[in-house]
Structure formats: structure tokens, C-alpha cells
Design a protein around this nucleic acid. Structure first.
Length: 301
DNA sequence: AACTCGTGGGT
DNA sequence: TACCCAAGAGT
């Protein structure tokens, strides 16, 4: 099958239709791009934009963030979700400041060695911040390739094969390759969407194997189902962190348990796992406002 | 290798 | 309305 037409068509579409995002501007730095990639993990662009702007105004360099308390990173993370990312981003900032002279490394393997940076983020930073020539594969790219190249309705489980598939489509010239990496993601994000693809707006509709086959319902059945959020431990943990974020200092352990869940076991589990994850620390004690009694308490790290 | 980890938007 | 899904990573 001839796939040589895909990258030029998608790049031409991208030139006309790409969203204007601040981390794509010339003023973006490797650090600001790295921060955007952390925030964008499993999180949509519109929710990231305001947090990204505030974050970089406050911590414009890795060493600036490294000098802050990790709990302040968790607080500034606000409601972006998966708050361990805030802790990991802080840790990565310390590692960059201490081991790389406050400069984000361009090398994929050096990036992979940083906390919270995996196969996607390492390549994304190397390519988008430094223009290196690598395939960058996220969930959008995997879906675009599954449909356009493999004729499938959806991608299967992530696999090493994904990188080879993308590498096969990548233009040889680094700048065009970097553009195509971003453009394939963009196409998946706003045209070749999971639920209701806008094929009438797609620059490669005529090349798409899935469309050519008549949109067969052949999605791989492997995909693990996402657990229900309502009533989950995640929700209970989220409530504890929400309480701590809006509190200036420590909060009584009883108040945290009460906020977490009506189920005492689940509430206890939420606090225990947050402590284990380092998202919360135990305070020896605080004075209860009502009674003046000294009670155990929790605070951000 | 399967499981866990938030929160909100789109349908 | 429930449900699916989201610029993934660590264990």
C-alpha cells in the first residue's frame, strides 16, 4: 500500500487548521514545552491552557520550580487531575536543575530517565522543543494510523509496532517530520476523533483505508474498560486534595476523612494511599478551632 | 501485563 | 442520562 501521500496532505491541512497554542509559539522554551506535555497527559487542551500560563509565570525555569515546596506544585496543579503528575513534574525539575545545569535535555534517553517522563513525553519534548527526528505517538496518532493505514475503526493496545508505523510515515527532513508528528496528533484531536469523526473535513479521506472499506465495525475488543468514577477511591482522594488545596495550612485528619467519603473504610483508604504517594503529609497536631483540643492533622508536602 | 491514578467535556 | 474518552506513566 502506498502511504507516501499521507504526510504531505496532513501537513498542508495543519498549516491552515492548526490551533494557535502558546507552547507552539516561537517564544516557547524547552521547559515550557515540557510543562505542557506533563499537563496534557490524559488531559484536554482547553483545561490545560490557563494552568499552563499561570505555572510558567510563577516558575519560568526548572530551578524556579525546584526551589518551591512540592505541595505548592500540587496546589497550582488545581483540578487538572492525576495530581501525582504535579509531584513528578516537581521532581523532574529538581533532576534537571541538579543533573543538567537547569537545561532540559534534548536526548530521548536522558529525558526518559527523568521522573514522570515516559515513551510519549520523551519523544514529544525531543521533537517539539529541539526538532530532533523521532516518531511521536500518542492516542490520537494511534487512532489516525489505525484508520487511515490499517483500515480499523480504532487502535488496539499500545505496542512497539506503533512507533514503527509512525516512523514509516515520517518525512525524512526533520522540520517536516516534526510538523507531521504534531499534525497527526492534531488531526486525531479535532477531525479523526474517537466518537464522531468529521471525515468531510479530513485531508486524507480519499486515502483512508477504513473509509474506503465502508467504515467496518472492526475495533479491537481488547480495550480495558475504565472504572466508574462516581463512588470510586479516586473520587475520595480527589476530595481530600481539594480540601487541602483550598486550605492555607494543615487540616485535621478527621476533617479530611469526612471530606473523603461516607464510607469509613474508603475514607481511610484514601488518606492512607495519599500518604503513601507523598501527595499528603502528616502534621504532628493542630489545635481544633472549636474545642482547643490537639488533634492529628494532614497537609500538602 | 494488568492495574491504578482525577476531572471534565462530548455524545 | 450514563457512558466513553482524554497530548500517559509507574508499579
Amino acid at each position: 500500500m502506498d502511504t507516501t501521500g499521507i504526510a504531505p496532505a496532513v501537513n498542508a491541512w495543519y498549516a491552515r487548521n492548526a490551533r494557535e497554542l502558546p507552547w507552539r509559539e516561537p517564544a516557547a522554551t524547552p521547559w515550557s514545552i515540557l510543562v505542557s506535555e506533563f499537563m496534557l497527559q490524559q488531559t484536554q487542551v482547553d483545561r490545560v491552557l490557563p494552568r499552563w500560563t499561570d505555572w510558567l509565570e510563577r516558575w519560568p525555569t526548572p530551578s524556579a520550580l525546584a526551589a518551591a515546596e512540592p505541595g505548592e506544585a500540587v496546589r497550582a496543579w488545581d483540578r487538572l487531575g492525576y495530581p501525582r503528575r504535579a509531584l513528578w513534574l516537581h521532581r523532574a525539575a529538581v533532576e534537571i536543575a541538579e543533573q543538567h545545569g537547569d537545561a532540559v535535555p534534548a536526548d530521548v534517553d536522558q529525558l526518559l530517565a527523568l521522573t514522570g517522563i515516559g515513551p510519549y513525553t520523551a519523544r514529544a519534548v525531543s521533537v517539539f522543543a529541539f526538532g530532533e527526528h523521532h516518531p511521536v505517538v500518542d492516542t490520537n496518532t494511534r487512532r489516525v494510523i489505525a484508520r487511515a493505514v490499517h483500515g480499523r475503526a480504532a487502535a488496539g493496545m499500545p505496542a512497539a509496532r506503533d512507533l514503527e508505523d509512525m516512523a514509516a510515515l515520517l518525512p525524512a527532513e526533520p522540520a517536516a517530520a516534526a510538523t507531521f508528528n504534531a499534525a497527526a496528533m492534531e488531526l486525531g484531536a479535532i477531525v479523526c476523533t474517537a466518537r464522531a469523526p468529521r471525515c468531510d473535513e479530513c485531508p486524507i479521506a480519499a486515502l483512508c483505508e477504513w473509509r474506503g472499506a465502508g467504515y467496518p465495525d472492526n475495533a479491537p475488543t481488547k480495550r480495558p474498560k475504565q472504572a466508574r468514577f462516581e463512588g470510586s477511591d479516586r473520587q475520595a482522594r480527589g476530595r481530600v486534595l481539594a480540601l487541602l488545596r483550598k486550605s492555607a495550612g494543615a487540616v485535621s485528619r478527621a476533617a479530611a476523612l469526612h471530606a473523603a467519603s461516607d464510607d469509613p473504610e474508603q475514607a481511610e483508604r484514601a488518606v492512607t494511599t495519599l500518604l503513601a504517594d507523598g501527595l499528603v503529609q502528616e502534621e504532628t497536631a493542630i489545635n481544633d478551632g472549636e474545642t482547643g483540643a490537639v488533634v492529628p492533622a494532614l497537609r500538602l508536602p
